[in-house]
């Protein structure tokens, strides 16, 4: 079983502050990390590999510094990594073409795993886009997977229904965070990760199309949230009395 997990490096959104003067989000100095659900995808890939045998490659298109974060995925148990440095347009059409190009260069692929969505932009576009570019079936938002040698079944929640979808390989699957609990690599695993292969490929060499983005970002505006933050922590009866008083004044006790 040849498994490819697509992983994205993102900024840690909980660290983002909004600049009072420009009203823009401040990204400078904010920590970066692998998007959380992509670790669930790696974990699921490792489990399937352990059961059915095969290889697991992680693939990341993004800033060249991401190699540090990729090591964490190698430490978790990926066999090798492919890194495509890219600081051009982050438009989804462009990025997914590069990813699809890299997957074709990797060659054999039975199972491609993505996260349901990345935590910074939360679009969930990349998985279905890659599937379309490679003309593959897709199973999205999988909350659990039953993988066998010849076929895989994914179960997902679709507004009040649990839908189970079966596919032969190759197939693209996007997973939710409930699918598993990603393992924490041990110190030994982390040390071992440095010896695993990491290929670095040039984006332009992977795509024959021109890479004209279909979308241009015009502006990114901060959305500050002002709250009163009045917290009562002394005597409980007193706290409750005060809060109810406040709510009544706000006119929301109706």
């Amino acid at each position: 079983m040849e498994i490819i997990v697509c992983a994205k490096q993102i900024v840690d959104v909980s660290d983002i502050k909004i600049d009072d003067k420009t009203n823009e989000p401040i990204l400078k100095g904010v920590d970066d990390k692998i998007s959380d659900i992509d670790k669930n995808a790696v974990e699921e890939g490792i489990k399937i590999k352990d059961e059915l045998g095969g290889n697991l490659t992680v693939l990341l298109v993004g800033p060249s510094e991401a190699t540090e974060n990729i090591k964490e995925l190698l430490a978790m148990g990926a066999d090798r990594a492919v890194m495509v440095p890219w600081d051009g347009s982050s438009s989804y059409d462009v990025v997914s073409k590069i990813i699809a190009g890299a997957i074709e260069k990797i060659g054999d692929h039975d199972l491609i795993l993505c996260g349901e969505a990345s935590l910074d932009l939360f679009s969930g576009q990349t998985g279905p886009r890659i599937a379309a570019l490679l003309d593959l079936p897709q199973i999205t938002y999988a909350q659990s997977l039953d993988a066998e040698d010849e076929k895989i079944v994914g179960h997902k929640d679709v507004g009040g229904k649990v839908v189970s979808i079966e596919s032969t390989y190759p197939v693209l699957v996007t997973v939710t965070k409930e699918i598993n609990e990603p393992r924490l690599p041990s110190l030994m695993d982390i040390l071992g990760a440095s010896n695993k292969p990491m290929d670095v490929w040039d984006a332009e060499s992977l795509v024959s199309d021109d890479l004209q983005p279909g979308l241009e970002t015009v502006e990114i505006k901060g959305v500050p949230m002002e709250r009163k933050k009045i917290v009562f922590h002394d005597d409980l009866d007193e706290s409750i009395e005060k809060v109810v008083e406040k709510l009544a004044k706000e006119g929301v006790l109706g």
Binding site: V11, V13, S14, I16, I18, E24, P25, L119, D120, L121, F122, L215, E216, T217, V218, E219, I220, K221, G222, V223, M225
Partner: peptide, 11 residues
């Protein structure tokens, strides 16, 4: 975007 901290205007 950014879990509600920002709004992206795109063309």
């Amino acid at each position: 975007i950014y879990s509600g901290k920002a709004l992206a205007v795109e063309r």
